[in-house]
Design a protein around this nucleic acid. Structure first.
Lengths: 218, 218
DNA sequence: TTGCTATTCAAACGTTCGTTTGATACAAAC
DNA sequence: GTTTGTATCAAACGAACGTTTGAATAGCAA
């Protein structure tokens, strides 16, 4: 417990502030001066502790993004605990909820989605980490969870596309909040988020097959 | 016809090359020197013709992105011509096809999606243009097309969310090609694109309701 | 020709960038 | 007390940035 007490070290302050700024503006739009100013430390601290701006960026993913992705995944799996096997709507509902409500604070979630979106848009090397350590295994897990509830005629590729569609929605509604808010005329409060979870769950459930949902929900 | 013959002017070369580079790397990651070098013109040309880098960026949207969005929309509407009223699967199929296959070359489509994605991620002022001139009217059009085929119990907001879900998929599969390719193990050739159109259409159709599809497709 | 306008160009502008440096402070080890 | 190693700091570095300048070059009208 005392291994890392509060750890309000320069290093950690840098990671926290860097993540927020990178998420908000993107790698190129944030300067080292901006980061160190926000972290209330000297300009040279980035190079001392991380060896450069790019390494700081990568370290943000290694030590903050990936652990948070794990928290999301654990939240998802915890929601399915005891349901053996979970029904289709359990899986999809837990998925949407883990991402849109889940264990993160709202600021964390925004940060998380934006960093991911940006990395999808502009692979800088961090995408390698995400794909290998997070996405790939998570998608496999999802496939195994969904497979028993779908007709056997559905191939693996088809199932994978469906999973990516759901993820696409989740990411999109998390990420392009500004556009979504503008087009729907709604602010991103708890009520709207709950509405989104409901919508994504319903839409995805029906999209996935819709043939054996009725038997589960009388 | 002779109004704009070839128009291989410096101005147009700048717009073309700037668009490609902005789409590929994002606004901040591209330098004026890089653009003018690609356009084979002098460094000062950007400021002479557009009055600055940001104005060039905005002009890319005004004179290239928006007209292309119109071509997509026309392609979508042309596919529905003669179908009065179009069925649900006509609308959704035409939508997916217009975006993923449609009237654009593959390079244009990549460029188009990337610019849009980036602007959703990083609103720089161009998003105002897109939302007002393109998205808003297009979404209204879609809503009117879909409305007659869905149960009356579905509210406007619900329908709008469904539309945004479909668009989210279309954008996502167009944009994050690298990640999609990596996770599916498939290259973005014509066959895969056709597969994506098929998938999005099917998934969206079912997601939209699934209650009156059967009557249309015996 | 002479003027006028529009465009291109090399060069330089001032600013900001990421990074490096060398001095300084501070604590634990000897 | 001295040494050693870690961390922070102000200052400066060279490079790259967006932009400006003023001269050179065309094309066309008078």
């Amino acid at each position: 417990m005392t291994e890392k007490p509060i750890d309000n070290t320069t290093r950690l302050r840098l990671l926290k502030n860097a993540e927020l700024l990178f998420a908000e503006k993107g790698f190129h739009a944030v300067s080292v001066r901006e980061i160190t100013k926000a972290a209330k430390c000297n300009l040279a601290a980035v190079n001392y502790h991380f060896g450069g701006k790019m390494n700081l960026y990568l370290e943000v993913f290694r030590s903050r993004w990936i652990p948070r992705a794990r928290r999301i995944r654990h939240s998802f799996e915890a929601a399915l605990q005891g349901l053996d096997p979970p029904f289709l709507d359990d899986v999809v509902g837990a998925l949407a909820q883990a991402f849109l409500e889940g264990p993160l604070t709202d600021e964390e979630r925004r940060c998380h989605s934006q960093l991911m979106y940006r990395e999808l848009a502009n692979p800088t090397g961090a995408l390698d980490l995400l794909a290998e350590k997070v996405m790939q295994p998570f998608f496999m897990k999802l496939r195994n969870l969904l497979r028993p509830h779908l007709p056997e005629t559905i191939g693996d590729d088809r199932l994978l596309l469906s999973i990516m569609s759901i993820i696409a929605m989740v990411i999109h509604f998390n990420f392009s909040r500004e556009a979504v808010s503008r087009l729907t005329g709604r602010t991103y409060d708890a009520a709207f988020k709950a509405r989104l979870v409901e919508h994504i769950t319903e839409f995805s459930l029906k999209g996935l097959g819709g043939m054996n949902i009725q038997e589960q929900q009388p």
